[in-house]
């Protein structure tokens, strides 16, 4: 009887491990789809920023994650409704590396996350100001599955607790058509703009203790011409 029980337990454990292996190496989720924004011919705006927390103007989370808030005395997001969120303020640069603006990024773990489907989702929003040009807002769903699988897990396996390489991927997985994020212009040349955008990452180094070490984020915004409905046309009682 004991032998059968041990066989059942061994089989169960092997089954769980087999399933985890299948999910991890799932060929259907092997690569992130290429965004049409990156291969289209429409005019785009490209902005880059450093993902490293210690290179941000401000980075804050609940203070319990491996990546610590920066600067060290910044308020932590410890309250229950925001403790699975992060906020950062970063300098935005153009393709030539020139400073072109500042951006705030808010990111929260998404309840739509389904690891079995290769989806480790985050709901995020950008608020960007480019002096002399204007402001815009971008909302997106990001999928960190490939980042976790290709960078974070190998860093855990590494005896140095780190990862080095050259990894590129589109993070944006919605909510717009073809997996793009939604961009709304606020002021200046972007006023009234409703268009699509994506965020992608280029990673070269990651450390378990510091998180992203040499990781560059890129916002690619398609310049469209569609206008938003004007709130002034809607009857609203204050």
């Amino acid at each position: 009887m004991t032998r059968y029980l041990l066989a059942l337990i061994a089989g169960f454990v092997a089954g769980v491990m087999l399933f985890a292996t299948l999910v991890y190496f799932n060929p259907i989720t092997a690569t992130a789809p290429l965004s049409p924004l990156l291969v289209g011919s429409n005019e785009i705006i490209s902005l880059t920023y450093s993902v490293a927390a210690d290179e941000a103007i401000v980075y804050s989370n609940n203070g319990e994650r491996r990546v610590k808030p920066n600067p060290d005395r910044v308020q932590e997001l410890w309250e229950a409704p925001i403790r699975r969120s992060s906020a950062r303020a970063v300098v935005m640069r153009d393709a030539a590396g020139n400073t072109t603006g500042i951006g705030f990024k808010f990111a929260s773990d998404s309840e739509s996350t389904r690891l079995v489907n290769g989806e480790a989702l985050s709901n995020s929003a950008w608020h960007v100001y480019l002096p002399g040009r204007g402001t815009f807002f971008m909302e997106q769903v990001e999928n960190y599955w490939h980042y976790i699988r290709d960078i974070v897990v190998p860093a855990y396996w590494s005896s140095a607790d780190s990862w080095k390489g050259n990894w590129n991927s589109t993070m944006t997985a919605g909510p717009g058509p073809l997996g793009s994020g939604r961009v709304s212009g606020g002021a200046g040349e972007f006023k009234g703009l409703v268009t699509a955008g994506i965020e992608s990452l280029n990673a070269k180094a990651f450390s378990l203790s510091r998180g992203a070490v040499a990781v560059t984020g890129q916002l690619t915004i398609e310049v469209g011409t569609e206008s938003e409905p004007d709130a002034a046309d809607l009857e609203i009682t204050d």
Binding site: Y4, A7, L8, I9, A10, G11, F12, V13, A14, G15, V16, M17, L18, F19, A20, V23, R114, L115, V116
Partner: peptide
């Protein structure tokens, strides 16, 4: 019994995830 446990493990992990 081992194979039954294996299938049970796969099903339980899939359901949990």
């Amino acid at each position: 019994t081992f194979i039954f446990g294996l299938i049970l493990g796969v099903a339980a992990a899939a359901a949990a995830l």
